[in-house]
Amino acid sequence: MPDEVHPTVEDPRVERARYWRFSGLPGTELLTARFVTTSFTRHTHPTYTIGMITGGIEEYSHPGGRSRVGPGGLAVVGPGEVHTGHAGIPEGWGYRVFYPAREVVEGVGRELGMRGTPGFRESGI
Results as ranks from 00 to 15, higher is better:
63 P>E: 03
17 A>V: 12
98 F>R: 10
38 T>W: 15
71 P>M: 08
4 E>V: 12
87 A>E: 05
101 A>T: 12
17 A>P: 05
110 R>F: 10
11 D>A: 03
44 T>C: 08
21 R>T: 15
58 E>F: 07
23 S>A: 03
30 L>S: 11
70 G>L: 06
75 A>I: 00
112 L>C: 11
32 T>G: 13
84 T>K: 10
11 D>K: 05
106 E>M: 11
11 D>H: 02
113 G>S: 10
29 E>K: 13
112 L>E: 14
46 P>W: 07
25 L>T: 10
118 P>W: 01
93 W>P: 04
16 R>M: 03
86 H>E: 15
81 E>T: 04
20 W>C: 14
102 R>S: 13
60 Y>R: 08
101 A>I: 11
44 T>F: 03
123 S>E: 08
52 M>K: 14
77 V>Y: 00
18 R>P: 04
45 H>I: 06
64 G>H: 03
36 V>M: 08
99 Y>F: 09
101 A>C: 14
10 E>K: 02
45 H>R: 06
78 G>T: 01
37 T>W: 12
30 L>R: 14
5 V>F: 05
71 P>C: 09
87 A>I: 09
3 D>C: 10
1 M>Q: 14
75 A>V: 00
7 P>N: 00
53 I>F: 01
76 V>I: 05
29 E>H: 10
116 G>W: 12
11 D>T: 02
111 E>M: 09
59 E>I: 00
56 G>M: 05
53 I>K: 00
19 Y>K: 09
78 G>N: 04
29 E>W: 06
38 T>N: 14
71 P>I: 05
44 T>N: 06
109 G>Y: 04
9 V>K: 12
98 F>E: 13
110 R>W: 12
83 H>A: 09
20 W>R: 15
69 V>A: 02
18 R>S: 08
75 A>L: 04
65 G>M: 00
55 G>Y: 06
97 V>S: 12
8 T>Y: 01
86 H>M: 15
32 T>I: 06
94 G>M: 02
104 V>G: 12
59 E>C: 03
46 P>I: 07
114 M>G: 13
50 I>R: 15
10 E>H: 02
37 T>R: 15
107 G>W: 13
59 E>K: 00
65 G>T: 05
37 T>I: 11
74 L>S: 02
74 L>N: 01
61 S>D: 03
22 F>C: 13
93 W>V: 05
